[in-house]
């Protein structure tokens, strides 16, 4: 099936099979490796990308569903070499360790801030319920999201 979508701001026409998962199309066809396959069951959040601004598990989302929509991956988060405030906050707060969850965390946080510009710590915890990290203990991630929200205000 032919789909037309915008990926990280760039229009794309792609030929994909109905059973192709968005994660595989992004990673293998478009060589956007930032979204990771981990639990493959929508629990961990490592494959999170934004479709029309909403967080989805790309591992369990048909690529054909992205037809006519706009997809944002971590590769599209920065403005050229200028990091997104969330990326800067993650770097500065020490919210990154192995990095495997990082792209999903960043995009989930971006979706949250689009809905809620003044999140409380509890709001962040609620939104990150489906985002697992095994390295950091989460504290610095939550701090980074709150710091980025503060910066954006």
């Amino acid at each position: 099936m032919t789909i037309r979508l915008v990926v990280n701001g760039r229009p794309r026409d792609l030929e994909v099979a109905p059973h192709a998962l968005l994660l595989d199309v992004l990673r293998d066809t478009l060589d956007l490796k930032g979204a990771k396959r981990s639990c493959d069951t929508q629990v961990c959040g490592a494959c999170t990308v934004l479709v029309d601004g909403l967080a989805v598990s790309a591992c369990t989302y048909l690529a054909v569903e992205a037809d006519g929509r706009s997809v944002l991956t971590v590769e599209g988060l920065a403005d050229g070499e200028s990091l997104h405030p969330l990326q800067r906050a993650f770097v500065e707060a020490g919210a990154v360790q192995c990095g495997f969850c990082t792209s999903g965390m960043l995009l989930t946080a971006k979706a949250m801030l689009a809905e809620n510009r003044t999140p409380t710590r509890d709001d962040v915890l609620h939104y990150l319920r489906g985002s697992l990290c095994r390295c950091t203990g989460y504290r610095k991630i939550v701090d980074a999201v709150l710091a980025a929200a503060e910066t954006a205000r």
């Binding site: 490796k33 971590v74 990326q87 500065e92």
Partner: peptide, 21 residues
């Protein structure tokens, strides 16, 4: 000193490469 990690930028931009990449 608490300097940011040297591989932070590649990790927050999705450029860091893991085996499956």
């Amino acid at each position: 000193h608490p300097v940011p990690r040297v591989d932070a930028i590649e990790k927050v931009t999705g450029r860091a490469r893991y085996v499956t990449d």
